[in-house]
Nucleic acid binder design. Structure first.
Lengths: 215, 215, 215, 215
DNA sequence: TATGAATGAGTTTTCATTCAT
DNA sequence: CATGAATGAAAACTCATTCAT
């Protein structure tokens, strides 16, 4: 099951920890939830696509909602993964990234790969967050505790270096994320069939962002 | 039912055209679809919230999907409404808007009010577009036929005037929309409870956009 | 539906209050719960026997347990009905019943008819009381509040008249009920097929009881 | 497993004949069947409470019903055990019991201890007898073949001695059993929490019975 | 036109039983 | 012997839709 490396990476588990059937179930669920939405997907459809009996799903996940969470929680963590790394901020301060642009480039590239790799799971996370307040709350908690604070330090660091406009850090963070996420959403969700030149369009997006934010 | 003016505006109908019960049904459906999603909302719940019998819904809308479309279609049209106006491009060319910034300001303000007014219906449109390809196709068709062409003319107009960077128009359109939509999404969907100073944050957003796009 | 008078009497409702289908459901449920027990009876079986769709059951009774309670609660009240009557004790004290034997005879006859008429519903009540503590608690509450107190007054009344042994009233009550219930259980539950001469056996049972309890 | 002597006694086996796991299964099954009823208890619950794997139950008992019978059959035999003893009737006739009262006292005491010791198993027997006609038939067969005949001889013996009223022996048997069973049911099933003085109440019950039955 | 009882196909979930390890 | 993953049939329950009133 080499071509399933992405699933192990997403779930952050070793190969031995999940049986073949469990993987089939998870993959089928991710695909169908992404396509039709959680509420519109029946467990019998998932079982059929996964090639298991319906009862098998409920042996591994007590309820359908548990199955959703088994997909959504890892995806949620991976969504903000770079910021969860201990050494991340240190990298910025100790001149790993000399300019905000380098930092943005690194994040952008990293998240581009992330979205490209895990697109269906990410769709599920974003779509269902709108309907399940427990997921939304978890996301907000993680964002505030692990992303926002670090991001703010970085922004203030580059503001002091005179690289960034003296806007409130929240605004700079919002514009940065919005610009990157805007590209990724357009590229992968809204117009995935458009003949994108990813390199060039990302370059343009970064230029736009840096011009927009420079002091 | 004065406080229901928004519904008439959204649906683009006169007061007499819809009975009280129909309005109740539509409003209940918008609210519940926005909160729980179309698939997770039962017609009996809608009937209860609307204060009508279950059968009454099906007297007005042959199927549940028809009820969704009765909400989604007008919302879809209103979403791109400014660009549907005949005189819209003429306004730009005949110096109604002397600068791209004025144009952006006008669109931004207009869409801000739109989102603020029709938020639940817009949620429904965006959430369900992901699951119903027919809605997505309609949206793309309208966008390409009525928004993209006009927007492109405008962008090229201001590029020729030397106001905008010589990026591909598609890129400028994307960055403009992304920046505006990014604010509105953050403001109304992702962090509606944050203590926003809308005026100021929109001003900052416009400055960012203009700096990012200037020649 | 004349032959369904017993159901109306048991439920203590008028004919118009329950639809034909509801009656079918209740009757089918009583019969099947009595035969196979609540837990071993499926709602689909009940639906089939009642000649309705399975969904119809759940339109009238939100859960299977609700259906059980719709049977059990009225039966529980009818079980202690004589003692719930306001004038019951007065009848005894004002020489309606001159002797304890007359009182016992009246109760015995009354309960005999009751069990004979509502046997299946009574089976359900007694069988399920063992498994559903909520039902058991209700029964005990009603017994203590409405039966025990009145019964005690009556016993003490006849003890003072010198008719009854000076045992603790609880003991006399227990022996009286046990003797009557013992006959009814043997007659209707344990050996319903034995060729009983009900009149004579009840007479003997009363003689036994009076001899056993006399001062 | 000394405190499990009761189980060996009930099942009438030696310690070596049953493995630890089998005992766990039987005990768990008795407890749960008594609490929730056979039909409402799942084999997985039993396995969990017994601390064994689900499959292990089915290794020892081919079906769930077999497990029930493994509990119910020994209990059924123990229920009528005194009458199964060969020398039982002889004891009575050869003046082991000079009076019916002595006989009743012996039976009463013996069955009191029996119910006290095996209460949960007895609950299971009585509850499920109502739903499984095969169990009921077995019980009736044993009762008629082994209990009734002997009991009748004894009753007639004491009638001839002039100790007992000249009622039909069946009636005397019924009243005797009903009176004893009525006490035990009230004492252990219906009002187990009442502050019983067992000695005294049993004494009163015997006095009542003897008075009721005396010639 | 509005109602709401009735439907039956479909949903999630449970469970006794099997079987490869 | 013991295990526990897997099964599929059946359970309780839901729901969009119909139709007689």
């Amino acid at each position: 099951m080499d071509e399933r490396k992405w699933l192990f990476d997403l779930l952050n588990v070793e190969e031995q920890q999940l049986s073949e059937k469990q993987l089939n179930i998870l993959q089928a669920a991710i695909e169908m939830f992404a396509e039709k939405g959680y509420a519109a997907t029946s467990t019998s459809e998932i079982a059929k696509r996964a090639g298991v009996a319906e009862g098998t799903i409920f042996r591994h996940y007590k309820t359908k909602k548990d199955l959703l969470l088994a997909i959504v929680k890892p995806t949620l963590f991976q969504s903000v993964a770079p910021f969860l790394a201990k050494k991340f901020v240190k990298d910025v301060f100790e001149n790993e990234y000399e300019h905000y642009e380098q930092f943005v480039r690194a994040v952008f590239k990293n998240r581009y790969e992330f979205v490209k790799t895990y697109l269906p799971a990410i769709r599920v996370l974003w779509q269902e967050m709108a309907f399940h307040s427990d997921i939304k709350v978890q996301f907000q908690t993680i964002f505030i505790n692990h992303v926002y604070d670090k991001f703010k330090q970085i922004v203030e660091h580059f503001q002091q270096k005179g690289e960034l406009a003296l806007l409130p850090p929240e605004t700079i963070i919002r514009l940065t994320i919005t610009t990157i996420a805007g590209f990724l959403a357009t590229r992968f969700l809204i117009m995935p069939d458009y003949p994108w030149d990813d390199e060039q369009e990302m370059e343009r997006t970064i230029q736009f962002l840096m011009n927009g934010l420079k002091a």
